[in-house]
Amino acid sequence: MADLTVIQDGRLSRPAGIRSIRLGDTKVSYVPDGDVRLRPLELLQDTTDEVWAAHPEYLDATGHLVGSVGGLLVEHGDRALLIDAGFGPQRHAAPDGPLAAIHGGALPQGLAELGRRPEDIEAVAFTHLHADHLGWACHPAPGGDRPLLAHADYLISEQEWAGRDLLEAQGMAEQVAALALRVRTVTDGQEVFPGVHVRITPGHTVGHAEYVITGGGRRLIAFGDAVHSPIQIDHPAWSSGFDHDGARTADHRRRLVAELAEPDTIGFGVHFADVVFGRVRQDGQGPAWQPVDA
């Protein structure tokens, strides 16, 4: 059951702005790029009209599930890592399927508000190679002809990069070519930045990666698209229409939800409306996502 204050404040049906928390000497910040509107029955195909009638707090006025689109800035001293790169300066709408509409473009402004220039980002660590996570790694900077983050290393799991032909078959050959110039593949358990370790969790894609960030006695799991909406925390068996292997994702999500209920553990859900940081509370009524704002 979602927190009543969060429902009353409308946080489950609006995209997030900049939000930051500290893990000891490490600061992590959600950097918004835009938002996505999703058709709930097509996204979570095990749901029904009755489910959404009982949970209107997740939907906007047009009946769409609201998701945030952006990246996670990880700062340690003078160093900066970005996990995922938003959708970039573009818009897209689809007449059917899970995706109704998506737009990006705000990430450079968000970085500036956080006191960072694109050149400060030493690497972009991708959870997976979908367009709403590649964004500014492939799209030119405003007024320029090179991608905004082209100076950075692009960290991609070995399995995901090996399966890039799946992207090319979906018409993303241009994006793959742009990434190839900067790619450095990473492996399960590898430390890619101080206190940041890769965890390979196939299911949503063939080489989907999570990033576990530790500091100050706490850990944060940036779980990418293993979970698309906070409602799945209550129903981990509900896989997404975007998942490459829904059964495998559901198995992982069950383990992830249990892990997020452990002490001193925070989750980061990049698409989680305005509750991108949270923890799982076990209250006898099933797991529930509780926002963490500090």
Rank of each mutant, 00 (worst) to 15 (best):
F277C: 03
L43E: 10
D153C: 02
Q109A: 06
V6R: 00
H92A: 15
T187K: 03
H208Y: 04
D283Y: 01
L73Y: 05
P32R: 01
I266F: 05
I83N: 09
R19Q: 15
G216S: 11
A94V: 11
E168M: 10
A162Q: 14
A178H: 04
V66D: 07
E191R: 10
G217Q: 07
Y211V: 10
L179W: 14
W161A: 01
I233N: 02
L256H: 13
I18L: 12
L148S: 07
R248W: 03
L43I: 02
E259D: 13
L114K: 02
G171Q: 03
A101M: 11
A85R: 05
P118N: 05
V36Y: 02
V28F: 14
Q170P: 00
V292H: 06
H252S: 15
V280G: 06
V270D: 03
A141V: 09
A2F: 00
T185A: 06
H133E: 01
L129P: 05
E119N: 00
V186P: 09
H128E: 14
S240E: 03
L129V: 04
P15R: 09
L179K: 11
R22L: 05
T185K: 08
T48S: 15
A261R: 09
D145K: 14
E119A: 15
V192C: 10
L81F: 14
G286I: 13
A150P: 01
E122Y: 02
A131S: 10
P194T: 14
V192K: 03
Q45N: 08
F126N: 00
S13G: 00
T26K: 01
L59V: 03
I213V: 15
R22Q: 08
T214H: 03
T187H: 14
I213E: 03
A94T: 13
H133A: 05
D60C: 02
S13C: 14
L134G: 00
R116Q: 07
L4H: 08
I213H: 08
R37D: 07
R255F: 00
S20M: 07
I266N: 00
D120N: 11
V66T: 12
L73C: 12
A169D: 13
V276G: 05
G67N: 12
L111T: 12
G34H: 09
L181W: 07
V176H: 00
T127M: 05
V51N: 08
R219D: 02
Q90E: 15
D84C: 06
Q45G: 04
E168L: 03
S157D: 04
G284V: 04
L81I: 13
G77A: 06
A169L: 14
W238D: 08
I231R: 02
G97Q: 05
F87Y: 15
K27C: 04
G207T: 13
D188A: 10
I233K: 06
H271I: 00
W238L: 08
G143P: 06
H133P: 00
G70R: 06
S229Y: 02
A288I: 01
G105N: 07
